[in-house]
Amino acid sequence: MTVSTIDLPVTRDDRRIARYAAAAIALTLAEATLPSPLPGVKPGLANIIVLVVLVRHGWRDAAWVSLLRVLAGSLLVGQFLAPGFFLGLTGALASLAVLAVTARLPTRWFGPVTASVLAAFAHIGGQLVLARLWLVPHDGVFYLVPIFAASALVFGIVNGLIAAKLLKELP
């Protein structure tokens, strides 16, 4: 067998990001088996991991974990390059943009719950804009905004609290 001439050095950062991304992907897969009352209404449990990574290791690592999660998660559920993949990617990018801002808020006043709730709103916001522009070129999609907003608020709070608890209790 020919010995590979390509040498990819793996840093400690890579291993850490891979570990977190694996956890996020596992949560995405677990969530994909749950029935959803409406496409788009999902707990988004993988975002708990993204929040933890954001607080522990900064925005760059959080962005890696979030985007790897979208990519690998969609490959595993067979949705890669399907509309759902682009919706998820847009949502992830929108919430990463918001998380870049919330990461600069004073930590004495704002915890993971603020980051989680705002990111959840950004997530549905980004998805709705893409859906309006591309999938449903009609203002009818905005009829669903109240449901999406309510679910983003509820799941944003729950995920934020879980992330806050993990950050407090895990070493």
Binding site: W109, G111, V113, T114, V117, A149, I157
Partner: peptide
């Protein structure tokens, strides 16, 4: 124990979120 995880600004965020959701219903429905 869960409520202790919320910081002062988080409550403001929650209030803002609840208002946003509350307004969106009559506005869009």
């Amino acid at each position: 124990a869960w409520l202790a995880l919320l910081r002062p600004g988080d409550w403001a965020t929650l209030l803002l979120g609840v208002l946003t959701v509350g307004i969106s219903f009559p506005l869009l429905w």
